[in-house]
Amino acid sequence: MLKINNLHARVEEKEILKGINLEVNAGEVHAIMGPNGSGKSTLASVIAGKEEFEVTRGKILFEGEDLDDTAPEERAHKGIFLSFQYPVEIPGVSVTNFIKTAINESRKARGMEDMPANQMLKKIREKSEMLDIDRKFLSRSLNEGFSGGEKKRNEIFQLAMLEPKLAILDETDSGLDIDALRIVANGVNKLRNKDNAVVVITHYQRLLEYIVPDFVHVLHDGKIVKSGGKELALELEEKGYDWVKQETVA
């Protein structure tokens, strides 16, 4: 589904991604871990098409197609979803209105009519129940005054509504309390099937106990320096990152 070859990217004059290789297939869960500032969010943004970052070398293929000239909204239409580490506020735009617009824009891009109102409402009800979201919450302005945890839960609500092929979750666990973490993780699991894939970026083993990864990758200084199975996450928790850093130098 997603194939990244020798990806280099920079912002202004600073090189942040220095040759990333990654392959994610349908039905898989990948975890990306790594120290602060190693380039995890940058990688996510580059996959999503943020223009601030310049791809200087390498390629991103999504379902066999080179994404080089693809605008961020088109990538979204193709089925790429990013749950942001820091979701932004849009004052005056309700969660409902926002998600309705997002869904209908994607449908329009696929040559479909707007989703009928009753279908939309039914879906909203279903997904908000699944994530234990109070309906009153949905009429509030998007992310405005939301607590850290509410913002993250709202990201996953949008994920559930949009049902993308590839979901990248950038530190969705940070800010969630223990119960919320379980609810959100269960929500993600329910959405999983053999045709979609999940990339979770996290610092903690805890989330991975719920969303069990098939592969774990360690990103350090813009490169994936180690990959392994789910045990790698446990090993990291125990030994810290110095261990992988040293291994790469050696």
Partner: peptide, 14 residues
């Protein structure tokens, strides 16, 4: 903000 626009773009809104 650029970030607001990118956020919308990411959700499929041009």
């Amino acid at each position: 903000g650029e970030d607001q626009i990118f956020y919308c773009n990411q959700r499929g809104i041009d």
